[in-house]
Design a protein around this nucleic acid. Sequence first.
DNA 1: ATCATGTTTATTAAATCAATCAATTTCATT
DNA 2: AATGAAATTGATTGATTTAATAAACATGAT
Lengths: 148, 148
Amino acid sequence: MLKINRQTDYAVRVVLALARHGEGVRLASREIQQEMLIPPALMARIVAQLARAGLVNTFAGRDGGLMLPRHPSQITLKDIVEAFEGPVLLSECLQGKGEKDCPFQSNCPVRPKWGRVQVAMLREMASITFEDLVLESLGIPMTIPSFA
Amino acid sequence: MLKINRQTDYAVRVVLALARHGEGVRLASREIQQEMLIPPALMARIVAQLARAGLVNTFAGRDGGLMLPRHPSQITLKDIVEAFEGPVLLSECLQGKGEKDCPFQSNCPVRPKWGRVQVAMLREMASITFEDLVLESLGIPMTIPSFA
DNA sequence: ATCATGTTTATTAAATCAATCAATTTCATT
DNA sequence: AATGAAATTGATTGATTTAATAAACATGAT
């Protein structure tokens, strides 16, 4: 169906929650989980992955929690998607795995086209920052989205 | 992982095979299947779906086969992807299913952003025609099925 | 030391995808 | 009409991925 998975969606919510509270603010994982309606048991995994990707700083122990390592304007949708979906690779050729059963072998004419689609997608995602999302969430849309 | 599925890839090969032979030419499903290294048992499904989407005309019976209903320049990657992946909907919000467990309910700030990404993707795919693919494929040697 | 926190791993359940098989319908040809 | 090559459809299996849960572990302010 060509859609992002749930964890990516949840991860966006986590970062958005932090971004809404400001750059230096530390929030407990549990608060965010409740505010953003994330399945409790999944939250752990999501936080861990965000931390691994350097998208949040975590603090264990009493009064621990999560904090953004940089300003929301410096974190984009692309960051989250790549951390959770892996590098976006629309076609199997683009992973190099498509040479065994491909009639064109290593010279597939379709491959560079998928590459173009992928680049278009990534460019758009890289242009959307969490500052944008915070503003949007405050009811101040920056752009008029127009989708078919 | 955010990738197209195999059937979509196979479907592109089918249309590409037809496009390479020209607009009015009728090819047997079996020929294409062998030329493009498509699993025999899957071929039936793919042809059926292409036909259902109006992307090929099919003819049953003796000397039946497949034919393109229009010029390759009038068929795009987007056509194939939408026929096989359904409408591209990156986020569940975009399907309207995301209002139950979404903390923002019907007013999600992220939704229009996914919409933008989606549009960028579709626009790029719509700009790639099978005429382009045929040109790209000229001069690229293919595997010869009988030697495989 | 302790307790509230994040971290990690293993497991289960559900959904999706790839592939196959078998039965059916279509239709040019004879 | 009868034939037979070809497309169409439905049911089924196995593999892979994703979602969710639970339990054991590590951390660090107090």
